[in-house]
């Protein structure tokens, strides 16, 4: 039995393995447990509806997070997206199902497209969201976002209760009308729910409050993501 780690393989491997687990408790598991126990929904925050939760599943499944953050940093350059994000903003982001028993990652690591923390306030029109998802270039010149036609059905004629998406002729299918399917509808419900809860003395969401309601009723915008 030697205590020279260069000769005693059990000592070398044991120190490496358990040493790493110890470090993982300091900077991984420990802080994760602490923030989980100390994160509460913000005052005034409303729990997501069933449709919005289903919409989050679509959002995750289509990989929207790879290009869209939901994370406003406490920096001047980020003020355009809203107030700085708080831990409580993510309290309602919870495990998806037994196959995905973790909260999905929605903070994001790339901002190829705009931050979505307040997209429900900024673009509160469901028709605009449908147009944009059907083909982003129909409403935003120069966008490189993928089109998501599989979130829509093309029908010969609209059935009662269908939302017909007024796709411009150059992007529309040759025949029939474009109608969002169930996945498209819940995704837009999720997007429209993305509104920061105002916090006293912590900066306000741009255009928060009345403009969100006004936007929802407005006709589809024709250009500009912001």
């Amino acid at each position: 039995m030697t205590f020279d780690v260069g000769r005693n393989h059990w000592l070398l491997f044991g120190v490496s393995f358990f040493g790493f687990i110890g470090l993982a408790f300091i900077v991984g598991i420990g802080p994760a447990i602490w923030v989980q126990d100390h994160t509460r929904p913000l005052p005034g925050a409303v729990a997501p509806t069933a449709d919005e939760t289903a919409g989050l599943h679509v959002f995750v499944s289509e990989g929207c997070v790879y290009c869209h953050t939901q994370q406003v940093r406490p920096l001047e350059m980020d003020a355009v997206w809203g107030r700085p994000s708080a831990p409580g903003d993510y309290a309602f982001v919870q495990a998806l199902d037994i196959w995905r028993p973790y909260a999905p990652a929605i903070l994001g690591s790339e901002r190829t497209g705009p931050d979505l923390s307040n997209v429900g306030t900024r673009q509160g029109s469901d028709v605009w969201q449908y147009l944009h998802l059907y083909n982003p270039r129909s409403v935003v010149d120069g966008s490189v976002m993928p089109a998501f036609p599989w979130l829509f059905d093309v029908k010969p004629a609209a059935a009662p209760g269908d939302t017909v998406v007024p796709v411009p002729a150059s992007y529309a299918p040759a025949h029939g009308v474009v109608v969002p399917n169930a996945r498209g509808r819940v995704l837009v419900a999720y997007l429209l729910s993305r509104k920061q809860v105002p916090m006293e003395g912590y900066g306000g969401a741009p255009g928060a409050g009345s403009s969100g309601e006004a936007g929802a009723a407005a006709a589809p915008a024709t250009s500009g993501a912001n």
């Binding site: 687990i21 993982a24 598991i29 994760a32 495990a95 903070l107």
Partner: peptide, 18 residues
């Protein structure tokens, strides 16, 4: 550690582990 779910049940604790 990354696939144990108990300490990844909200958006922020998951982010720490991520």
């Amino acid at each position: 550690i990354a696939y144990i779910p108990w300490y990844q049940q909200n958006g922020i604790s998951e982010t720490v582990i991520q």
